[in-house]
C-alpha cells in the first residue's frame, strides 16, 4: 500500500522578465508504507519543491500529491490537522530548526500539546522523558536549551520532537549531512532502529548515495525536476541503468586508496583526451 503518492506533478515558477522555471516535470513518486525510501538528487534538482508540496507550502501547477488517499493541497480543517500530525519532518540543520529559546521539554512536548495528545503538564513531561530516553538522551536534559547540546544531540532532539506525535510518515531532509562523521552513523542507526520499532514510513532526502544505500530499501533519483530512475536501492545502486545515476555513482569518492588513485588517474587521462 502506498502512503504517499505524487502523480504527474508539475510545478512551474514564473518571474517577471525571465523564462519560467520548470522545477518539477511530471514527477511520479510512490512511497510504500513501512519502507525507508530515498530521494536522491543534486542541488537544483527539485528535491525542496517536492518537500514543500508535501508540506502544502507549494501548490503544484498540475498533478496530485496525496497522503493516504487525501490530496494535500485541498485538505482543510480536521483532515489537514490529521496530516499535520501524521506527517512529520526532520531537517538538515538542527541548530536552525530548533527554537533556541525553548527548552527540550517545550520543543519535544509542543506537538503533544497542540494536538491534545497527552493532557496535563505532568503527564506530558513523563512522555517527553520517555521520548528522550528512546533517542538516547535523558530526563536530565528536559530543562536544557538546544545551545547546550552538540550537533548530533540536537538532531536527536529534532527526531524526538518529530516522533512525539506518533507520525505515520517521516520526511527527513538531509538529516545527517550537517553532522560529524563519527556522529552521523549514530543518528543513522537511531533512525533505522526507530523505524523498525515503530513501523513508520520514511522519505529520506539525501545527496550522499552511500548513506542512501545503507539505510533505504527503495530509491528514486531525480534530475532537473524529473525522476530518472527508481527501484530497490540494492538494484539501482548496484546496477544503475540511467546515465545520470551512473554518473552520480561514479563520482562518489571511494575510500580505498588503490581504487581511488586508479580512478583519479583515469579522470586525468579523460581530461587530457
Amino acid at each position: 500500500m502506498s502512503l504517499l503518492e505524487l502523480r504527474d506533478v508539475c510545478k512551474t515558477f514564473h518571474s517577471l522578465g525571465r523564462e519560467p522555471v520548470k522545477a518539477l516535470r511530471d514527477v511520479n513518486l510512490t512511497v510504500e508504507a513501512g519502507t525507508i525510501t530515498g530521494l536522491v538528487g543534486e542541488s537544483g534538482s527539485g528535491k525542496t519543491t517536492i518537500i514543500k508540496s508535501i508540506m502544502g507550502l507549494e501548490k503544484p501547477t498540475s498533478g496530485t500529491v496525496s497522503y493516504d488517499g487525501i490530496n494535500i493541497p485541498e485538505a482543510k480543517g480536521e483532515t489537514l490537522k490529521r496530516i499535520r500530525r501524521e506527517v512529520q519532518f526532520v531537517f538538515q540543520d538542527p541548530t536552525a530548526s530548533l527554537n533556541p529559546r525553548m527548552t527540550v521539554e517545550q520543543l519535544v512536548g509542543e506537538g503533544l500539546q497542540v494536538h491534545k495528545l497527552v493532557p496535563g503538564r505532568a503527564r506530558r513531561r513523563e512522555r517527553v522523558a520517555e521520548l528522550l530516553n528512546m533517542v538516547g538522551l535523558s530526563e536530565r536534559d528536559l530543562e536544557r536549551y538546544p545551545r547546550s547540546f552538540s550537533g548530533g544531540q540536537r538532531q536527536r532532539i529534532a527526531i524526538a520532537r518529530a516522533l512525539a506525535v506518533g507520525p505515520k510518515l517521516l520526511i527527513c531532509d538531509e538529516p545527517v549531512s550537517a553532522l560529524d562523521v563519527s556522529v552521523q552513523a549514530q543518528v543513522l542507526n537511531l533512525l533505522q532502529d526507530m523505524q523498525e520499532e515503530l513501523g513508520f514510513t520514511v522519505l529520506f532526502i539525501a545527496h550522499d548515495l552511500a548513506v542512501v544505500r545503507q539505510i533505504c530499501s527503495q530509491v528514486a533519483v531525480i534530475q532537473t525536476g524529473q525522476i530518472v530512475e527508481e527501484g530497490p536501492s540494492e538494484t539501482v545502486l548496484a546496477n544503475p541503468t540511467h546515465p545520470y545515476t551512473k554518473a552520480l555513482l561514479a563520482a562518489v569518492p571511494n575510500p580505498n586508496p588503490t581504487i581511488a588513485r586508479q580512478r583519479a588517474l583515469e579522470r586525468l587521462n579523460e581530461k587530457v583526451a
Binding site: S150, Q214, L249
Partner: peptide
C-alpha cells in the same frame, strides 16, 4: 573509517564511535 557508509558495501548496522568530541 568504520563509521563512514560505503558505496561499495552495505553492513547490517553501521559501527559507531559513542559520544561526541
Amino acid at each position: 573509517l568504520q563509521a563512514v557508509p560505503r558505496i561499495d558495501q552495505t553492513v547490517p548496522r553501521l559501527l559507531t564511535i559513542a559520544g561526541a568530541p
